[in-house]
Every structure is written in structure tokens, then in C-alpha cells.
């Protein structure tokens, strides 16, 4: 009995015909499901990959930067665009709060996507196809994809990654032939500035003109992910806009008091190297990530911010 000890002979009681029948059916269903999953690895076309490499966020970010510098063919709303060769290895990085780069893929071709995160755990959610994978920092998840339909796809983030999580959205365009590029406005992409690849870390850039610096700085802005949070058109959601920032006064807090501070080269430098030192009032909740910029890149991005008056 449910509340009393069971009645005499409960252990010997035969299982009723209908109950026995149900248990057998249920058992058969269980075995069926088990076998089905294994069979799908043989005959099915959608199976989570088994290839993972251990990496670390810094290493993967370097990989991403190098990959994008080498292959980008233009920019789409602050996100570099890459058109990888079919069958090639593609680097896709999630970071707070963007997916980079945007990709142009050919229908019915295979691509090896290496996906990892620069900071937190993210969720790769391909829409409208609706395929979802978990992305970690420190693990390079290699997913071999073959797009089966042409059209514009988005990559949402569906693992919570901080206050700007909802704004983390990337793009994949699937084309049948290059003629399709026009449909997506990708036919007139301007390739990276000529001296883009030379915004290298070691090179001496003291002789560069301001124009060169600004151009390279824009690329740093896009490549390093400043664009994920800071806009250049005056709109503010996650972080202060860069428009008109340079030369203005910022109201900041250092944890003890709030005060105004002049936005100049030195301030931008500390903003990047020690993001937590001065927190802009009104943005206490959205934390700026620490991004490693070389001295050259810092100089270039500062020139770029300066140019946005």
C-alpha cells in the first residue's frame, strides 16, 4: 500500500497481462531510440562533430585576427566579411558581443568552421535553419558544414553572455554563384585598405600620415571588436559612442568619487589597457572587456576616434 506496508504476497504477485505488455513495448521503444541515434551517424546528414582542439582565448584571437586580415574582402556594419574557399578552414570567433567575421559561403560546398570564444561561453545559433551549438573559450570546435539552401542567415547568440547578449548577431550569406552577391549588397565591397595588413605590431609607424593612421585605426576598431559595443554614429546602447568623443569631457567614476576627465590620447590608452580604472557614469553595468592592443594599434585606433568629430 502506498501508506501502509504492502499486502501479503505482494512480492510473488504475477505481473498483469496489460502491464507486462506495456513494459515490453516501452522496452522496445527504448532500444529503438538507442539504435536510431547510432544509425543516424551512418545514414543521417546532421551529426554533432567529434573534432575539438584545445586552445586558449589569446591564441584563438590571434588566429582570428590573422585569418581576417588575410582574407577579408570588406566590411558590413563594422563586421569584416570573408569569402572562404570551399573546403577550407574558416575561423569564426564569438566575443562580447559579436560574431566575426561575416561569411559568404557557396551552396552545396563543405566548409570546416573552427568556432571558439574570446571570453565567455556563447551559443552559436544559425537561423533560419535553426542549428544550435555551444561555444566555449579554450576549445576550438570544428564543425563541418554544408549549406543546403541559398539565402541570408544570421548567427544569434543563445547562451547568456552579459548585458549586450541580445545584440550579438552575426551573418552568413549563402550564394549559388557570384551573381547572387548583388542581392546582398556584397558586390561592391571595398577590400581592406592597402596598408591594412601593415598595421602590424612590430613595424615602425612613426612616419605614417594621419590619414594612414585613421584608415588603419578603423580596421583595428572593426577587427578587435570595439565595433561590437561602440558605435560611430552617435547611438548609445551598450557603450558610449565614439562620435565626438575625442576632446570632450567624460564623466567617470573610479569607484570612490565621480569626476570629469578630458578625453585625450592618455585617457583612451587607459580606457583600453585598464578598462576598470575609470568607469563612465551610466555604464557601470556593462563592463568593457580587456582587449590586447599593441602600441601601434592603440595609436591607430586613437587617431580613428579623433577623426570622428
Amino acid at each position: 500500500m502506498s501508506l501502509l506496508a504492502p499486502s501479503e504476497g505482494w512480492f510473488q504477485k504475477k505481473v498483469a497481462k496489460d502491464e507486462r505488455m506495456w513494459i515490453l513495448i516501452a522496452f522496445a521503444v527504448c532500444i529503438f531510440l538507442f539504435v536510431w541515434m547510432i544509425m543516424w551517424h551512418v545514414v543521417g546528414r546532421q551529426n554533432p562533430s567529434n573534432t575539438t582542439y584545445k586552445t586558449n582565448p589569446t591564441e584563438f584571437a590571434q588566429l582570428h585576427d590573422a585569418y581576417v586580415k588575410k582574407n577579408m574582402i570588406g566590411m558590413d556594419n563594422g563586421i569584416p566579411v570573408v569569402k572562404p574557399e570551399p573546403g577550407s578552414d574558416v575561423i569564426l570567433m564569438g566575443q562580447m558581443w559579436r560574431w566575426s567575421p561575416a561569411l559568404i559561403l557557396k551552396k552545396d560546398e563543405w566548409y570546416n568552421l573552427h568556432i571558439s570564444s574570446k571570453d565567455l561561453v556563447h551559443g552559436f545559433s544559425l537561423q533560419p535553419s535553426n542549428m544550435n551549438f555551444q561555444i566555449y573559450p579554450s576549445y576550438d570546435y570544428v564543425l563541418k558544414f554544408k549549406p543546403t539552401a541559398a539565402g541570408e542567415c544570421k548567427i544569434l547568440c543563445n547562451e547568456y553572455c552579459g548585458i549586450g547578449h541580445h545584440a550579438m548577431i552575426g551573418k552568413i550569406v549563402v550564394i549559388e554563384s557570384d551573381a547572387d552577391l548583388a542581392k546582398y549588397g556584397y558586390d561592391k565591397l571595398s577590400a581592406a585598405p592597402a596598408d591594412y595588413s601593415s598595421s602590424a605590431t612590430e613595424e615602425d609607424i612613426s612616419g605614417w600620415s594621419n590619414e594612414q593612421l585613421v584608415k588603419a585605426g578603423e580596421t583595428v576598431y572593426n577587427l578587435k571588436g570595439c565595433s561590437g559595443c561602440h558605435k560611430t554614429d552617435g547611438t548609445v546602447q551598450i557603450a558610449p559612442s565614439f562620435k565626438g568623443l575625442y576632446g570632450s569631457k567624460s564623466k567617470v567614476s573610479d569607484g570612490k568619487s565621480t569626476f570629469e576627465i578630458q578625453v585625450d590620447d592618455a585617457y583612451i590608452e587607459t580606457s583600453v589597457t585598464e578598462p576598470q580604472k575609470h568607469i563612465v557614469v551610466g555604464f557601470e553595468k556593462t563592463q568593457m572587456a580587456k582587449l590586447d592592443l599593441s602600441a601601434n594599434e592603440l595609436k591607430q585606433v586613437t587617431a580613428f576616434i579623433k577623426s570622428l568629430q
Binding site: 558590413d76 556594419n77 563594422g78 563586421i79 558581443w97 559579436r98 551559443g123 545559433s125 537561423q127 533560419p128 535553426n130 544570421k154 544569434l156 547568440c157 543563445n158 547562451e159 547568456y160 549586450g164 547578449h165 541580445h166 545584440a167 550579438m168 548577431i169 552575426g170 551573418k171 565595433s227 561590437g228 547611438t235 546602447q237 551598450i238
Partner: peptide
């Protein structure tokens, strides 16, 4: 969810993002 809408997600108009997405 089967139409792709994420859980734990504040804004399905993706405001502030570089792109946007319209669900079915």
C-alpha cells in the same frame, strides 16, 4: 523555440546589434 527563438534573451529585435533577424 522550434522556430529558433533563443532562451534567456532580452530583445528579439536585436537592438544595438550590427544586423537584425526576423523570425518566421
Amino acid at each position: 523555440g522550434q522556430l529558433g527563438v533563443p532562451r534567456r534573451h532580452w530583445d528579439s529585435s536585436f537592438s544595438g546589434g550590427p544586423f537584425t533577424h526576423t523570425f518566421n
